[in-house]
Computed example of a mutant assay.
Amino acid sequence: MGDRDALRRPAGVRSVHLGDTKVSYVPDGAVRLRPRDLLPDTTGEVWEGHPEFLDESGSLVASIGGLLVENGDRALLIDAGFGPRSWPPAPDGPRGAIHGGALLDSLSALGRRPEEIEAVALTHLHSDHTGWAWHPAPGTDRPAFAHADYLVSAQEWARRDLAEAQEVAGLAPRVRTVTDGQEIFPGVRMRIAAGHSPGHAEYVITSGGQRLIAFGDALHSPIQVGHPAWSSAFDHDPVHSADHRRRLVAELTEPGTIGFGVHFADVVFGRVRQDGDRPAWLPLDA
């Protein structure tokens, strides 16, 4: 991996062109994660052997944001960040300090206003993906995307009891459920990739003979690409999650396929290539 510091900092705005479609990472904030708590099957020796993944505090740095998909005048947002708020580190478990708040400024830097987003497609209902979809925008009493449809897999919405009640209540008036394989935007299809949550969704974007898989929280860190059996402590069903991750990693090795890892520090866009006896994440700008 070329720029090793990229694994220790949150991602900035990044864009990729797929034929007539432009996809851009829209930063909102970041979260620090305790690596052994996040990936319980790892050991201290694993992380001692991979110091490039850890910042000066020994934490994994995970980006938080969304993916802007533009086709002509139309625009779709996949995931809505954490919103304009911050939480201190949890006393135990994987999560360190987390903050959001930059997503609207990031959209503006990409030349888009919130009212131009026709739909917000959610990979799942965790708070670091739904923030701006329900949290009031600064200076208002309404969410920034209150005019848009919120697209959620039918399986995920059926188990909304597992999400934060306040957030679900904020989303409910705008939710439109979608089914496995459904096209939600030109060249964009939702598919179920359950394991991280009951109805976790991935979005497959196809244009210009290329394919991009926005795989949400099926992978939290590039280190999992070489070790797909390592499930996250946040996974609802770790066994199912690992099974899916093995298939996903294999799919990402296929020609013309790009991955988008929303939490992948400053290497959110990449391909999977063989590195010795294991697959590895190769950032697009490496």
Rank of each mutant, 00 (worst) to 15 (best):
T179H: 15
P138I: 01
S127F: 07
I192N: 15
E202I: 12
R176S: 04
R112V: 12
E167I: 09
T130Q: 04
T123K: 10
R160N: 10
D141Y: 04
H196A: 08
A201S: 15
R142C: 09
Q182L: 05
D180H: 13
T123C: 14
S106C: 03
A169C: 04
P186C: 01
A146P: 09
V152L: 02
D161C: 11
H126F: 11
E156K: 08
G93P: 06
Q182K: 06
V152W: 00
E116K: 06
G195F: 03
R160L: 06
G170D: 03
A194D: 15
R174L: 08
I192Y: 15
R191D: 15
G199C: 10
R176Y: 03
A193C: 15
V178I: 11
Q155K: 13
Q182H: 05
L162I: 12
D92Q: 09
A144H: 02
L103A: 03
A148G: 05
A172P: 07
E167R: 13
W132T: 02
A97C: 08
E156G: 09
Q155N: 14
E167W: 08
Y150P: 00
D180Q: 07
D141G: 12
A109D: 12
H124W: 10
A194Q: 14
A172G: 07
L125V: 08
D128C: 01
D180P: 07
H126N: 13
L110M: 07
I192M: 15
E202Y: 09
A146T: 11
T177F: 04
V120H: 04
P114W: 03
A146E: 14
I184L: 07
I117F: 06
R95S: 04
Y150C: 10
D141C: 03
R113C: 06
R174G: 06
S106I: 00
V120D: 07
T177W: 04
A163H: 11
D92M: 05
V175D: 05
H124I: 08
T130W: 04
H99P: 02
E115Y: 12
V152R: 01
A163I: 10
T140W: 02
A102D: 15
S108Q: 11
I117Y: 05
R112N: 01
I117E: 03
V168W: 09
R159F: 14
A137M: 03
A158L: 13
E156Y: 09
T140S: 12
L107Y: 00
F145C: 07
M190C: 15
H99S: 12
E167V: 05
V188Q: 03
P186A: 01
D161Y: 13
A137Y: 03
G93H: 05
R142Y: 10
Q182Y: 02
L151C: 00
R159V: 11
I192S: 15
V120P: 04
Q166W: 12
E116L: 09
G101L: 02
E115S: 14
E164S: 13
R191T: 15
G199R: 10
T130A: 05
Q166K: 14
A97Y: 00
R159S: 14
E118D: 10
